[in-house]
Simulated assay, not measured.
Amino acid sequence: MTDTTPYDDTDQGAVARTLETTDDEDPKRWSCRLAGSTRTLGVRPANAVGSDVLSVVVGGARSPELRPRIDTLLAALAATAS
């Protein structure tokens, strides 16, 4: 059974608290799965220690259509953060 509960402020708080203790140089850093109707991606966000940068690694984007969309999304997020 798939959880279809909408993402809300409670989820945002949990993610923020988890990210506070991450280190992008730690190979065992926190990871999560994003499951869609046809694909599942592995996402590994982590803080770059000593800066305000959030490092994000996305795995599982095997289709040529999905990869540019992920790159565009990450570029848009980076632009709004600066």
Results as ranks from 00 to 15, higher is better:
residue 1 M to R: 03
residue 40 T to H: 03
residue 20 E to Q: 12
residue 52 D to C: 03
residue 51 S to W: 08
residue 66 L to Y: 02
residue 74 L to S: 10
residue 51 S to M: 09
residue 67 R to F: 09
residue 75 A to D: 15
residue 73 L to G: 09
residue 6 P to F: 09
residue 3 D to H: 01
residue 45 P to Q: 03
residue 13 G to W: 00
residue 40 T to Q: 08
residue 23 D to F: 03
residue 68 P to W: 11
residue 51 S to D: 06
residue 55 S to D: 15
residue 5 T to V: 09
residue 27 P to C: 06
residue 49 V to E: 15
residue 63 S to G: 15
residue 64 P to S: 13
residue 52 D to S: 11
residue 54 L to D: 02
residue 8 D to K: 03
residue 17 R to T: 11
residue 25 E to K: 09
residue 9 D to I: 10
residue 37 S to Q: 11
residue 76 A to E: 06
residue 48 A to H: 12
residue 3 D to E: 10
residue 47 N to A: 10
residue 53 V to I: 15
residue 61 A to E: 10
residue 37 S to P: 12
residue 24 D to F: 10
residue 48 A to L: 12
residue 9 D to N: 04
residue 79 A to L: 10
residue 55 S to G: 00
residue 12 Q to C: 08
residue 71 D to V: 13
residue 36 G to N: 07
residue 78 A to E: 08
residue 65 E to K: 02
residue 42 G to C: 08
residue 41 L to Q: 03
residue 43 V to G: 02
residue 21 T to H: 13
residue 22 T to V: 08
residue 61 A to V: 10
residue 15 V to E: 01
residue 39 R to S: 13
residue 14 A to T: 13
residue 73 L to C: 14
residue 59 G to L: 12
residue 8 D to S: 07
residue 2 T to A: 13
residue 6 P to L: 11
residue 24 D to I: 00
residue 23 D to W: 01
residue 73 L to N: 06
residue 29 R to G: 14
residue 29 R to K: 13
residue 59 G to N: 09
residue 12 Q to T: 08
residue 28 K to M: 05
residue 6 P to C: 10
residue 48 A to Q: 14
residue 56 V to Q: 02
residue 59 G to Y: 08
residue 54 L to P: 06
residue 42 G to A: 14
residue 1 M to G: 15
residue 51 S to K: 02
residue 5 T to M: 04
residue 3 D to S: 11
residue 43 V to W: 02
residue 63 S to F: 05
residue 21 T to A: 15
residue 70 I to T: 09
residue 46 A to H: 00
residue 33 R to K: 07
residue 16 A to I: 07
residue 42 G to E: 14
residue 32 C to G: 14
residue 45 P to Y: 00
residue 55 S to E: 14
residue 27 P to I: 03
residue 65 E to P: 00
residue 23 D to Y: 01
residue 71 D to Y: 02
residue 58 V to W: 06
residue 34 L to Y: 11
residue 78 A to M: 01
residue 48 A to W: 03
residue 76 A to D: 11
residue 20 E to C: 02
residue 18 T to R: 09
residue 28 K to T: 05
residue 11 D to C: 09
residue 50 G to T: 00
residue 26 D to I: 04
residue 61 A to C: 10
residue 62 R to N: 10
